[in-house]
Amino acid sequence: MSHLDYIRTVEDAFKKLGINPNDAKAPIQGAWIFKRGSATIRVMLNSTPTSEGEQKTLAMMAHISEMPRRKQRQFFRRLLEMNSSFITERFEIFDNEIYLTASRYLEGLDSDEVVDMMKEISETADFVDDRIKKEFADAFGPPQPKSKK
């Protein structure tokens, strides 16, 4: 399939979710942004280097939170623990922000699978962003002043 065929595949997935793909288009061809629940999802067609050369991929990312200023060790441990419960998603750090991501090679991809990926990442992101922010509420924001003894 050509790049344009994969664009059509992703756009068909948006239509199946009741989202106008033109409303979700990003300024770059082969990229979209949409909101579902509390999650903002970026969808991108990419080329990814592999040991066998460049592979075309579909990638999705949902912003979860900023980097915590305190309790980083506990925070990252919790993310790794949560990673083990996901099937297709994983946490990543990009530009000092935490994202939930999912990706897949384009070969054999159909619009139903794209719909499943969009649903899964948006539902998972919607669940974990609230959970993380609640569990680590005191880890975000400016550093607290040290108490005087």
Rank of each mutant, 00 (worst) to 15 (best):
P27W: 11
L45K: 02
I93K: 10
H63D: 01
D5P: 02
T57I: 09
I7H: 01
H3L: 12
S147W: 09
M44L: 06
R77D: 00
K148T: 12
D110S: 05
R42F: 13
R131H: 06
E11N: 11
P49C: 01
K25C: 02
S147M: 15
I7D: 00
P143D: 07
N96H: 12
R73F: 07
E11R: 14
P68N: 09
F136Q: 12
M60W: 01
D110T: 02
V114W: 09
I87C: 03
Q72C: 07
D12I: 03
L100G: 04
N46I: 10
P68L: 07
P68D: 08
M82S: 05
R42Q: 13
A137T: 03
T101D: 09
R8P: 03
A139S: 15
K148H: 07
G53V: 10
I41E: 14
I132E: 11
T124K: 04
I19Q: 08
R36F: 04
K146G: 03
R78M: 11
K71S: 15
M82C: 01
T40W: 06
G53I: 04
K15T: 15
K71N: 15
R70P: 00
I132P: 06
G53H: 06
K35W: 05
Q74W: 08
M60Q: 14
L100E: 07
K146P: 00
D126Q: 08
K25Y: 06
E107Q: 14
E123P: 01
A102P: 05
K133D: 10
I98E: 00
T88E: 06
E11P: 11
M82V: 06
E97K: 15
R104L: 07
M82F: 03
A24Y: 07
A59V: 00
S147N: 11
E135Y: 05
W32Q: 06
E11C: 07
Q72K: 15
A59C: 00
I132Q: 11
F127D: 13
D116L: 12
S85Q: 12
L58D: 02
R78Y: 15
I33M: 03
Y105H: 03
M44H: 03
W32E: 03
G141D: 10
T9L: 10
M1D: 13
I87R: 14
F91P: 03
Y105G: 10
S85H: 10
L79W: 00
E123M: 07
H3G: 02
K35Y: 00
M82R: 13
F127K: 15
D116E: 12
L100H: 08
E66R: 08
L45C: 07
G30E: 10
E97I: 02
V10Y: 01
R77P: 00
F127L: 15
A62Q: 08
S84Q: 13
A137D: 11
V10Q: 01
M60V: 12
P21R: 05
I64C: 06
H63T: 06
P143N: 12
I93V: 15
I28Y: 08
H63V: 05
